[in-house]
Nucleic acid binder design. Structure first.
Length: 422
DNA sequence: CTACCTTTGAAGGTT
DNA sequence: AACCTTCAAAGGTAG
């Protein structure tokens, strides 16, 4: 983990955080040219066309410019390796200027505690000191006040109408405004957050932008109590406790919390529900609705993408995210160390806030049903003694060797053995 | 309707 | 420790 490189003096993050930056030909001369999204796009596209050709880095510039941009779908047909290869060529030759001059970024004042003097997060802080992260309603990034992810979404002194009155989405009854001195958006279990000074408190209440509401679902079992919202125990009035899981006090679904059945399902709850046929369907549906999906905090590059995507899309006609992301990836590498550091810092704060708001949350919670949860049934079967059976099956290596996981071997021997065991 | 593509980084898991 | 896998966002596209 990058931030755990305590010995290192690099405060900009981990070594690996900067590896890519270094690898991107930082030593190479940077021609001062105005790089546009069209140029990037043309680079991406031309790289796909040119990938089969042998070209030198130095000569790829004009060649790519001359080449007409292929249909955008072309890149889908290319392998990832070829794309990377092409991108490297482009980076080395074509894409040389930092395309990110007007950096619309407001640097956060150093928010103290969890960081070592060099700016990196102390190991203890990472494990014990939970520092909050902010995530905002849909399309509004939690750190929008800090970086201009989308300026139109947030105006500090002029909150949007739907936020001003803070109307309960269910009842339609306006809620009283939150006290200015207390952030209403951290209804965490007492003893965890409430006593911890909010490192990002400067961005929470002023904007009326909620951060992760705590939820009762979507967590792994070892941490249920810490995640349960108990209004009576909370120092916050009951009306400040989020009324529902994925709805914060404004009633806007939080981007970090989605119902899992939209795309993914909580692995644990899913497993437990596999044999829950006893329950009624209505109950199942109800439980499903109660489940929430707490998303991972965004990393530095994701924050960068979120901010810059609209810009790139606006500069070129292409809207296909795959192509846009290629451009953004190259722009990311073209950023200076300091510019990247800003995003690493933001991402670090995001992680810390996320950690504080969801102490028991693990990235694994969002994994879909994982194979390791299901031991290979073949392993528990009696050994196959038939010598005509494949050796691997006789040895009870009933694994999908290619995928290297504990899925049941579908060979006839294992299937028969499995059937016999049943 | 769902999965895929495409990027980087973080985190968890495996070897 | 090194390596592998998954998931974060996004929206067009293919099946």
């Amino acid at each position: 983990m990058p931030q755990l490189n305590g010995g290192g003096g690099d405060d900009l993050g981990a070594n690996d955080e900067m590896i890519s930056f270094k690898d991107e030909g930082e030593q190479e001369e940077k021609i001062s040219e105005n790089s546009s999204a069209e140029r990037d796009l043309a680079d991406v596209k031309s790289s796909l066309v040119n990938e089969s050709e042998t070209n030198q880095n130095s000569s790829s510039d004009s060649e790519a410019e001359r080449r007409p941009a292929p249909r955008s779908e072309t890149f889908r047909d290319k392998t990832r390796e070829s794309l990377e290869e092409a991108a490297k060529r482009q980076d080395g030759g074509l894409f040389k200027s930092p395309p990110y001059p007007g950096y619309p970024f407001i640097m956060i004042p150093d928010l103290t505690s969890p960081y070592l003097p060099n700016g990196s997060l102390s190991p203890t802080a990472r494990t014990s000191n939970k520092v909050p992260v902010v995530q905002h309603p849909h399309h509004v990034h939690p750190l929008t006040p800090l970086i201009t992810y989308s300026n139109e979404h947030f105006t500090p002194g002029n909150p949007p109408p739907h936020l001003q009155t803070d109307v309960d989405p269910k009842t339609g009854i306006p809620r009283p405004p939150h006290p200015p001195d207390i952030s209403p958006y951290y209804p965490l279990s007492p003893g965890t957050v409430g006593q911890i000074p909010h490192p990002l408190g400067w961005l929470v209440p002023q904007q009326g932008q909620p951060v992760y509401p705590i939820t009762t679902g979507g967590f792994r079992h070892p941490y249920p109590t810490a995640l349960t919202v108990n209004a009576s125990m909370s120092r916050f009035p009951p009306h400040m406790v989020p009324p529902h899981h994925s709805l914060h006090t404004t009633g806007i679904p939080h981007p970090a919390i989605v119902t899992p059945n939209v795309k993914q399902e909580s692995s644990h709850s899913d497993i437990s529900s596999l044999d829950s046929s006893k329950q009624t369907d209505g109950k199942k549906v109800e439980e499903k609705k109660k489940e929430v999906h707490i998303k991972k905090p965004l990393n530095a590059f994701m924050l960068y993408m979120k901010e810059m995507r609209a810009k790139v899309v606006a500069e070129c006609t292409l809207k296909e995210s795959a192509a846009i992301n290629q451009i953004l990836g190259r722009r990311w590498h073209a950023l200076s160390r300091e510019e990247q550091a800003k995003y690493y810092e933001l991402a670090r704060k995001e992680r810390q806030l996320h950690m504080q708001l969801y102490p028991g949350w693990s990235a694994r919670d969002n994994y879909v049903k994982r194979r390791e949860y299901f031991p290979n049934p073949c392993l528990s079967l009696p050994p196959i003694t038939d010598l005509s059976a494949p050796k691997k099956c006789r040895a009870r290596f009933g694994l999908d060797q290619q995928n290297n996981w504990c899925g049941p071997c579908r060979c006839v021997w294992c299937v028969l053995a499995l059937a016999r065991a049943r």
